[in-house]
């Protein structure tokens, strides 16, 4: 029975196209779609059911929790800013320039997205760590050591969050096309003016969407941080690191903190992600 369904759906879609009613969805899509949604949403429900709600205020208002929350928000905020400042121009170049080897470059930028974060952390450790490529020079010449500092947390988060911004923004730039820029240029606007007054406003929804995703990713960063920055209250122990540690002694506390991360991330995604960006990749 199921074998005939795709063919049926195909026929239905063709019929729709012919009568110009718009493309309907084949009904069989619902089953895997609901399964996918359940897989994503159900564990959060499970987490909430397991929580000790009576102890919730005490657990969330503990000093270590508040310190971790503040550190997480600050570092994720700065990381997002860095992603926009540096990733934005990178996305523009990837989308618009005619550089040879752009495909290779694009794949490299995507690397943090597919790498296990702990691998990223180790890579950072062996580059900017005290014995690393750049780290050694920094340590010897300027007496600066990056690991175990808040700067290391920000660096780790920026590393893992960067592709989210670049991919979103590059997609927006490609979808927007260059017609308006071309018009502005023929009217005598300089490259800088066109970029500021035409390109940026056009892709703003894509930029905000990418920044929101980058922020959420930075908030959730664990592997690269623990491998590269370590874990010390007030300096490097962000919320995910505290959750991992609390799990050892007080599972209720770990669950409460996990729910806090879920709520903060949802708030950021739902409130800040612009409606218009939803269709964009």
């Amino acid at each position: 029975m199921t074998a005939t369904l795709p063919a049926q759906a195909d026929a239905e879609r063709k019929a729709h196209d012919r009568h110009d009613i718009g493309i309907g969805l084949p009904r069989w899509l619902w089953l895997p779609a609901v399964a996918a949604f359940t897989l994503v949403a159900l564990p959060v429900v499970g987490l909430a059911l397991e929580a000790d709600w009576a102890r919730m205020p005490e657990l969330l208002l503990s000093e270590s929790a508040l310190t971790a929350l503040r550190l997480s928000l600050e570092t994720a905020g700065i990381s997002t800013l860095l992603c926009v400042l540096f990733g934005g121009p990178l996305a523009a170049i990837l989308a618009r320039s005619r550089l040879p080897g752009l495909r290779v470059l694009r794949s490299l930028v995507l690397l943090p997205l597919v790498l296990p974060p702990v691998v990223g952390g180790l890579a950072l450790l062996f580059t900017v760590g005290r014995t690393g490529l750049i780290g050694q020079a920094l340590h010897l010449w300027f007496g600066i050591t990056i690991p175990f500092t808040t700067a290391a947390v920000i660096l780790a988060q920026t590393f893992v969050a960067m592709p989210f911004l670049v991919v979103s923004l590059e997609g927006a730039l490609r979808t927007a096309g260059q017609r308006y820029e071309a018009v502005a240029a023929t009217l005598g606007a300089s490259a800088g003016l066109v970029f500021r007054r035409v390109t940026v406003p056009l892709v703003l929804p894509g930029l905000v969407s990418g920044a929101v995703l980058a922020f959420a990713r930075a908030m959730g960063e664990f592997g690269a941080t623990i491998a590269f920055a370590g874990s010390l209250e007030g300096t490097t122990r962000t919320l995910p690191l505290l959750v991992y540690l609390e799990r050892e002694v007080d599972i209720d506390s770990a669950i409460a903190l996990s729910l806090m991360i879920v709520v903060v991330s949802l708030l950021v995604i739902v409130v800040l992600r612009p409606r218009g960006a939803e269709g964009l990749r």
Binding site: R130, P147, A227, S231, L232, E233, L241, Y244
Partner: peptide
């Protein structure tokens, strides 16, 4: 006054082995 309190003993060892 440690610079980091790691979640397991292997992470501590890793930081020493890597020279950090």
């Amino acid at each position: 006054k440690p610079v980091s309190e790691e979640p397991d003993v292997r992470s501590v060892l890793g930081k020493v082995i890597s020279g950090n």
